[in-house]
Computed example of a mutant assay.
Amino acid sequence: MSPSAELRAALVDRLVQDGTLADPVWRRAAQAVPREVFVGSYFEPVPGSAPTAYRPVRRGEPGWLEGVYEDRTLITQLDGVVGPGDVGGEPVAGSPSSSSTLPSLVLRMWQQLGSAPGHRVLEIGTGTGYSTALGAHRFGDANLTSIEYDPVVAGAAAVALKEAGYAPRLVIGDGLRGDPGGGVYDRLIATCSVRYVPVSWLHQVRPGGRILVTLCGWSYASGLALLTVTGPGSATGRFLPGFTSFMIARPHDRPPRPALALLPGEERVSRIDPAVIGTWTGGWVAQLAAPSAERMGAGGEQVLVDVATGSQARTTPGPDGGWPVSQRGPLRLWDQVERAVEAWQKAGAPHQEGFGITVSGAGQRVWIGSEDGQGWDLPI
C-alpha cells in the first residue's frame, strides 16, 4: 500500500470510529478519492502571528502529505489571487479566499443531504474539487453539476478531477444564480455561505427536494440549514446541530468600508452581558437582529458597526459592574441586539437546532421553536 493510501485509510478509520462516516456508501467514496490530487500545495497559518501570516507548504516537502490527510481545512488561496506557488518560502499575510474543507465536514454534509441513487445534484462551490469528486463517486458523473465562481480555482479543480478519474459537469459562473443551463435537481449543496437563500435555487430544486446551505452574515456568524422545497420559490427547514462555517460567497460578502473611527454617542447601561454575543449562538442571534452590521471585540468590550448606515454601538465593562453602551447613527444597533438576545434567552437559549427557516415570496424568516415564534427577516 502506498503512503497516501495508508494515510487515507487511517483517516477513514478515524472518521468511522468517531461516528462521522456512518454510511458505508460514503465510506467507500472517502476511501476511493485521493485528497492529495486536489491539494497539491496549501498555506499553513503561522502560530502566534497577528495578523495571521501563512507559510506555503508545497507538494513533496516534508510533512506535506501528512498535512493533506489531517482532518482540517487547508487554505489554498489568499485575497482571491495568491496561491502557494505564487510566493517564496517566507510567510505572507492575506485573507483566505479558497480552501479544501476538512474531510469530516464535507462527508458529514453529504450524508446530511439525504440523497439517493439516481438523484440529480447541484453543488455550489467546486473549490479544489475534492468534495465534487466525492459526489461524483457517489452519484455518477452524469448526475452531478458543480459551479465555481473563480475561473482560476475552477481550472485547477477540472485538472485534478480528470487526474482522479472523474468527469462531472463543471460550470464557471455565479452559483448564486443557479445552473445557467437550467434543469431541475433533486438536491443542492453549497460549500460557501450566503446571507439568504438565492431565489434561483428555489426554482431549480424540485418540490420535495432538499437544499443544504450555511447561512452567514457580515458578522460572520454561521448556521447550517437543511431546507425542503415546498413549491417554486418556497421552502421550509431547520438548522442542524454542530458548528459549521464556510467562506461567504463573494457576491454576498460585505463591501469595503473606510477605516473605522469610533465616535461618541448616546449612553446607557446594557441589560445583557455583551460577552454573550461572542458565543457561537449568541453571535448568530445578534447577527439576525443586526444583519448588515460587522462585529468586533471580545468579552465585555464589543463593537458593532453597520456597514450600510455607519451606525455604531460600543460596550465597555463598567468600573462598578455592568456594561455601559454607547450608540450613534440612524440605527440603535444595541437596542436591536439586546431585544433579540433577551427573546432567545427567554426561549431557553437553544443552540441552532432550535431554529428554523421559512422562505416564500413574502421574504425569508428565521425563527425560534416554531414558525409562529420569535423571528427575524433575512436581508434580501
Rank of each mutant, 00 (worst) to 15 (best):
E61S: 09
V359W: 08
A221S: 11
L15E: 10
R58P: 05
A286V: 01
V269P: 03
E294D: 14
S131A: 10
P317D: 06
G178D: 02
L215E: 04
M296V: 06
A156L: 00
S222Y: 10
P168E: 00
Q111R: 01
T76P: 07
R328M: 10
P291D: 08
G178L: 01
L7R: 12
G114R: 05
W376D: 03
Q312T: 02
Y220F: 10
L122F: 06
Q111H: 02
L65M: 12
Y69F: 13
P274Y: 02
P56M: 11
Q374R: 13
R339K: 09
P198S: 08
L288M: 15
S131G: 15
G173M: 02
Q352E: 15
V16F: 12
L7K: 07
R55Y: 08
Q345N: 14
V12Y: 02
I211N: 07
G209M: 01
F38L: 01
R332T: 11
V68C: 05
G127C: 01
F139Y: 14
P319W: 10
R238P: 00
S234E: 08
T191S: 10
F38I: 07
R254I: 05
A29E: 02
T358H: 15
D273N: 11
V25W: 03
L260E: 06
V39P: 06
P274E: 03
L224E: 13
E371Q: 14
A50W: 12
V366Y: 06
Q327L: 05
D179L: 00
A275E: 13
L263Y: 03
E90V: 07
G223L: 04
C216I: 09
G310M: 04
R55N: 08
R328I: 07
